[in-house]
Each structure stands twice: as structure tokens, then as C-alpha cells.
């Protein structure tokens, strides 16, 4: 069976600056891939290409074996959670879930409300349903962003540094939610610097350096047995301690 997502020799540059220099990656259903690498290595660009937010210059990206021709079409299969949440400030917490369901999926109000209640319970935000996002902590905002993305039933959920703008204890709340999703078998791509936190549930790690995937494999393999020099340097730099 074809992989859920496959990237074949994907290249992208901004002007002279080559950001992705031939990316090859396969994501199977159920994979939870942690994407690590130093700042500027191209992590965000890579996941943004997958999410169809950026054009690529060459190479191909496949969704369920089919080449993606219209990059806008992937929104039906991919959900995205951003570092800065990008919640809709003029909607209440529950409306952030209800309104997209109504507008995009044309769901009737009752069904949309039920779905929002279910999702808010899942991310432990039921109490805040009637508040506006501006009144919430960063951790709550990010959990709402996750619930909002889940409402669309994405096959793949992509996170770009979901906890980088959060204090450690709030980041912990968010990781707890992501971990719950992992238990349910949700396919996820997670760009993060918090390697320790994701190592508990990621099934795979991809290490990006200068627009190339230098190492890609099971957690244990990457963190303990890799002999890739760049990876070793990177891990030493982020002072990663084996679990």
C-alpha cells in the first residue's frame, strides 16, 4: 500500500537561498514523526510544503500514492497547528470549532455543537467554552487550536513548534494532549525543539540539516545508535539526555 505522504527529491529555495535540497520522506498511517534540526535547517518549510502552504520548485509530493497537483487540495486531509495558535479572536472558544464546521462542512448547528463539546472535553477545555481566546493561557490556546484542527477529521495532523512560545508547564499540558492523540493512532508530524518530550511517543525521528534529511528512523535508533556525525553534534548541542 502506498504511503500516506511521500516526498520525492523535493527542492525549494527562496531566491538564492536553497532551503530544501532534495527531501525524501515517507509517512505511513499511524506514524508519529518528530522533525528535529537546528534553527534555519528547513523544518518549517518542509512541513509547510506538505501542508500545501508553499510551492515547491522541483520534486514531487504524493498523498496516498497520488501526486499532489493542486497544493490547495490537501487541506481536506491535513490539519495544521501553528506555533502562534492563529485562533479566531472574534469567535468564542466553542465558536472556533463550531463556525468552521458550519462554514466549511455545512454541518447543522446541533451536530456542530455536539462535536465541539466532544472535542473540548478531549482537550480539557469544556469549562472555557464561552470565553474568548484572548482570556486563555498559551497552553489552553494551543489545545483549542488542536481541537479546532481535529474537528475537520484530518488524516494527518502537522504541528510546527506547537510549544515553542509556551512556558514549560504549559508546554507539558499541550504535550499531554498530543500524547493522547498518539494513543488513538492519529498520524502526526511534529516539528519541535523539545526532543525529550516527543521522544516518549514519537514512532520516528527525522533529523534535518541544511535542507536535507540526514537521519530518519525509529526513536531509539536515532537517539542511541546513530553514527551520523551531524546528528550527534546536534544532539550534544541540545544537551539531550537519553531516556
Amino acid at each position: 500500500m502506498a504511503a500516506l505522504i511521500a516526498m520525492r527529491d523535493v527542492k525549494k529555495s527562496y531566491g538564492e537561498n536553497v532551503v530544501l535540497n532534495g527531501i525524501n520522506l515517507e509517512v505511513e498511517k499511524g506514524d508519529i514523526v518528530a522533525i528535529i534540526g537546528s534553527s534555519g535547517s528547513g523544518k518549517s518549510t518542509m512541513v509547510r510544503c506538505i501542508a500545501g502552504l508553499e510551492d515547491i520548485q522541483s520534486g514531487k509530493i504524493f498523498l496516498r500514492g497520488e501526486e499532489i497537483i493542486d497544493r490547495n487540495s490537501v487541506v481536506h486531509s491535513i490539519g495544521m497547528v501553528f506555533q502562534n495558535f492563529h485562533l479566531f479572536p472574534h469567535y468564542t472558544v466553542e465558536e472556533n470549532i463550531i463556525k468552521p464546521l458550519r462554514t466549511v462542512k455545512k454541518m447543522d448547528l446541533k451536530a456542530a455543537k455536539e462535536k465541539s463539546e466532544e472535542l473540548l472535553r478531549k482537550v480539557r477545555l469544556s469549562e472555557s467554552a464561552r470565553q474568548y481566546p484572548s482570556t486563555m493561557s498559551g497552553g489552553q490556546k494551543q489545545r483549542l487550536a488542536i481541537a479546532r484542527a481535529l474537528a475537520m477529521n484530518p488524516e494527518i495532523l502537522v504541528f510546527d513548534e506547537p510549544t515553542s512560545s509556551l512556558d514549560p508547564e504549559l508546554a507539558h499540558e499541550v504535550f499531554r494532549t498530543i500524547k493522547d492523540l498518539a494513543t488513538e493512532g492519529q498520524t502526526m508530524l511534529i516539528v519541535t525543539h523539545q526532543i525529550n518530550a516527543v521522544s516518549h511517543f514519537a514512532t520516528r525521528v527525522a533529523f534535518l540539516d541544511s535542507g536535507i534529511i540526514e537521519a530518519d528512523g525509529a526513536c531509539k535508533e536515532i537517539f542511541e545508535n546513530s553514527d551520523n556525525q551531524k546528528l550527534k553534534q546536534f544532539l550534544a548541542m541540545v544537551e539531550f539526555n537519553t531516556i
Binding site: A51, L53, N72, V75, H76, I78, G79, M80, F82, N84, H86, L87, F88, P100, T103, V104, K105, A145, R148, A149, A151, M152
Partner: peptide, 18 residues
């Protein structure tokens, strides 16, 4: 209006008009 609002809406399936 923050550019992120457009990206978030797009990823949820909103058309540009919506």
C-alpha cells in the same frame, strides 16, 4: 489582520471568499 489568520482558515478548508 495577521497573515496567520488566512493560513489557519485555509488549512481548515475555508475558501478565500469565506
Amino acid at each position: 489582520v495577521d497573515k496567520g489568520q488566512y493560513e489557519a482558515a485555509h488549512m481548515l478548508g475555508y475558501t478565500p471568499l469565506q
